[in-house]
Amino acid sequence: MFAIVRRHPANIAWIALNVALLIVVAGLLVAGSRVSVTGYYSEAAWNWMAGQSMYDTTGTGFLYLPHSAIAYIPFAVQAHPQGDVAWRIISLILFVLGCYRFFRLSPQKSEFFNLSAGFVALLLCADCMRNGQATVIMTATMLLAIDAIRRENWHLCTWLLMLGFAVKPLSIVLILLVGALYAPMRWRLGVGIIVLALVPFAFQSPDYVWQQYEEFGLCLFHSNRIGYEKWWAQLFGMLKAFGLEVPDSIQTASRLLCAVGTLAICFVLKQKLDSKRFLVWLYTLTAIYLMLFNPRTENCTYCVLGPALGLFYAEALCGRRWFAAGSMMALAVVILGSFELGQHITPQGVPPVWLAPLACCFFTLYAAFRLTSELNRLEPPPSREAQPVLE
């Protein structure tokens, strides 16, 4: 971590970019910007402390576990906008640390590489930071958990994954993959889930906590329903914007099939790749699956894809693969401006939610090409049998 602050122009530029983002976001909050979801977190935190319901059970508003409201209490009790700014500072610090540890998995190790990869990750994080989304912290915990696996620190990995799940349940995808792929994690994740479920009972009455769990389950059901009914920045939302309405049953079957396919690919890659490179692909495949198949992916959710896109951009840039690097940067810009760009080229009555998943589809194709290339380099050359000598 301390390497980030070493005196090097690239490190200084990286720190300056993060500070600039914080200043802009803080300035918007001080100026009275209401483009933020932290109001839902704050309201849930106060309701928790008052022993009142945190959910409206319609699939809108506060959608997370009670743990998320408990975690936000230190920020909710602060005056506005100090609490909102503090939440974003903590989020960005964790995100930067997670990106730094994740980028170290690449064979490319330099300050310029970190700056290049970090710049792209920061681009896709910017909208999430402005909104105050818990996605930033969830992404950070996922990245740090990947690094903990590299160091075979199974206990730390477990608690990081549990923290990410407590903040935002989307991290369940990585939890399931890690549990299936790493035997030492299975019993630890089981214990972690039990402990996580019991934590809220230490802060409120058992009846109230149980009621909140029931309401959360109902809220999750309706949230998933809304994910099928409305427009979202995922694969089926993109197809819907193109005029292709996919039936709910086929959507569900596709999600399950691709989940099994992702797990199968990971099993194969774990056997073929070295541990560091496999972890890069484990996170990348997790991020792609979440972006394309999570029913309620939003444009700012693509923060999760940012570190993976940034790493492949920096590898292409440092390897002087200019077309690949330019393509990765173009995809990042399209995702960043998906709403602003999309609203000018989307038919009236259709929300501009299709550009980000379309860019993710192109990134998926690039990832498939890169993965195939890496696997081909691992294949031993065909042996040449001795040719008979003609006398």
Rank of each mutant, 00 (worst) to 15 (best):
S91K: 00
S91T: 02
S91H: 02
S91I: 00
I93G: 09
I93V: 11
I93E: 06
F95I: 00
V96P: 05
V96F: 06
L97W: 11
L97R: 14
L97V: 15
G98K: 01
G98S: 07
G98P: 05
C99T: 10
C99D: 12
Y100P: 12
R101T: 09
R101E: 12
F102P: 11
F103Q: 05
R104Y: 04
R104I: 03
L105D: 01
S106L: 12
P107T: 08
P107V: 06
P107D: 08
Q108A: 13
Q108C: 09
K109Y: 05
K109S: 06
K109W: 05
S110Y: 08
N114R: 01
L115G: 00
L115S: 00
S116I: 09
S116D: 04
A117N: 02
G118Q: 02
F119Q: 02
V120D: 02
A121P: 03
A121W: 03
A121L: 02
L122H: 01
L122P: 04
L122C: 00
L122S: 07
L123R: 01
L123A: 11
L124R: 03
L124K: 00
C125K: 00
C125W: 04
C125Q: 12
A126I: 08
M129L: 15
M129N: 06
M129I: 03
R130F: 08
R130H: 09
G132W: 11
Q133M: 13
Q133C: 10
A134Y: 00
A134R: 00
V136C: 04
I137S: 12
I137C: 11
M138T: 15
M138D: 06
A140M: 04
T141I: 01
T141G: 07
T141V: 04
M142W: 09
M142C: 15
L143N: 05
L143S: 01
L143M: 07
A145F: 01
A145S: 15
A145R: 08
I146P: 05
D147V: 07
D147G: 13
A148R: 13
A148N: 08
A148T: 15
R150M: 01
R151N: 13
E152F: 04
E152T: 11
N153R: 15
H155V: 15
H155S: 14
H155C: 10
L156H: 06
L156G: 03
C157Y: 13
